[in-house]
């Protein structure tokens, strides 16, 4: 009944989803915290460089292109574009290493 050889769907079946299709509420909360943390790191680096008076291309580009956590739509926070999925959106947690990579932009119109 229990243990590694229990007869459950994902273990015995062939193609069964093991990753839920949407994020749970605490997962979404922690994801927002991570987004805010990255925003904070970029802001700190930017403030230090402002005092130095020497801009860095990576920082300038990030500021110009990337929305902050507060500016992002819920759609872009929790889902991402995928051409293979119906309606072209999948949960962001399907992205490999999704807690340690930045995925904020999606193709316009999708």
């Amino acid at each position: 009944m229990f243990g590694a050889f229990r007869p459950s769907g994902p273990l015995f079946g062939g193609l069964l989803w093991k990753i839920p299709y949407r994020l749970s509420r605490p997962q979404k909360y922690r994801h927002r915290q991570r987004l805010k943390h990255v925003d904070k790191v970029v802001a700190t680096v930017d403030a230090a460089l402002q005092k130095l008076g020497k801009p860095v291309a990576a920082v300038e580009r990030w500021k110009e292109e990337m929305p902050t956590e507060a500016e992002m739509l819920a759609k872009d926070k929790y889902t991402m574009f995928d051409k293979k999925v119906k309606k072209y959106r999948k949960g962001i947690h399907k992205l490999p290493k999704w807690t340690r990579v930045s995925q904020r932009l999606n193709p316009p119109g999708f």
């Binding site: 790191v41 680096v45 230090a48 460089l49 860095v56 920082v59």
Partner: peptide, 21 residues
């Protein structure tokens, strides 16, 4: 030290680190 090259490195690993000035 606060330098351009260090800032670029931090940007490359910004998801992994915590930074203070």
């Amino acid at each position: 030290p606060v330098r351009q090259d260090v800032a670029g490195k931090i940007m490359a690993v910004k998801e992994l680190v915590d930074v203070q000035e």
